[in-house]
Computed example of a mutant assay.
Amino acid sequence: MFRSRSKEDHSPAAEAAEELTQRDPQAPKGRPTPKRRDAQAQRRSLSKPPANRKEAAKRAREARRADMAKQREALATGDERYLPPRDRGPTRRFARDYIDAKWHIAEFFLPIAVLILVLSIVPNVQAKNLSLVLWMGVIAMIVLDSVVTARRLKKALRERFPGENLRGVTMYALMRTLQMRRMRLPKPQVARGEAPRR
């Protein structure tokens, strides 16, 4: 009546089931399982409170350094999990893609400003007048392009994200237009002319 099951469960079907449940130790993990005492010692060392202020500061520094490394990598790859709070969320991602998919006059502001500066230094009245006209023209074109971009982006955001809080997204996108494409962070994830990601 109280016999152990191990003695009576030696049928071929039970043995086949047992073979299937046994996992190859090298299969998915690729490394041996640590011994219990090693795993517990590692857990204790991580959860043990710091002995003094110096140790606490060292741990905080290491944690901050690890977070910053993850953030830098996320800014380069676009990984949303580790992006700074100002870049997170589907609305911000859509705004980034919307800006990166188009050409904007504001992204050429720095090279044009250098050209205007060079023209203003030249000891020639005509060059100085030309630099002034260029300066006014560039500012006017940037303002016009920004107004048009802001209106179109707001419309696209309202269509794509009805009922969501869109506060600050347009200004975030316009600030991105002022940066040259290769210097933008997070890095552009869409090519010019490509539709924004879902």
Rank of each mutant, 00 (worst) to 15 (best):
W103G: 09
K48A: 15
H10L: 15
A140P: 02
G137Q: 04
R72K: 13
E15V: 14
A101F: 04
R88S: 08
V147R: 10
Q26I: 01
P49G: 03
P25Y: 10
K58D: 05
T77E: 06
Q22A: 12
Q71F: 00
E107R: 10
T91H: 05
A63F: 04
A14N: 14
N124F: 06
G137S: 11
V147A: 12
D87F: 13
G30L: 03
P49C: 00
I99C: 04
P49Y: 01
G137K: 01
L130M: 05
L117Q: 11
V114Q: 08
R37C: 07
P12Q: 13
A76Q: 13
Y98G: 02
T77A: 04
A127F: 12
T77L: 05
M68H: 12
R43N: 08
D100V: 07
G78H: 05
D97V: 02
K128Q: 13
D24A: 11
G30D: 04
L144V: 13
S11R: 12
P49F: 00
V147L: 12
H10T: 15
Y98C: 08
S47K: 05
E73Y: 02
D67S: 14
P123G: 02
R43G: 06
R96F: 03
K128N: 10
F108M: 09
D87K: 11
N124I: 02
K54W: 09
V122I: 15
G30N: 07
D100M: 07
M136W: 03
P123Y: 01
I99F: 04
A51H: 03
E80M: 00
K48F: 06
R36H: 08
S131W: 06
A127T: 09
F109T: 07
L144T: 12
D79I: 02
P111E: 00
R61N: 09
E62C: 00
A76L: 15
L75V: 05
A51W: 00
P49T: 02
A41R: 12
T21N: 13
I105Q: 12
R59M: 07
F108S: 10
K48R: 15
S11A: 13
E80K: 00
A56H: 07
D100C: 09
A76N: 13
L134R: 01
A39D: 04
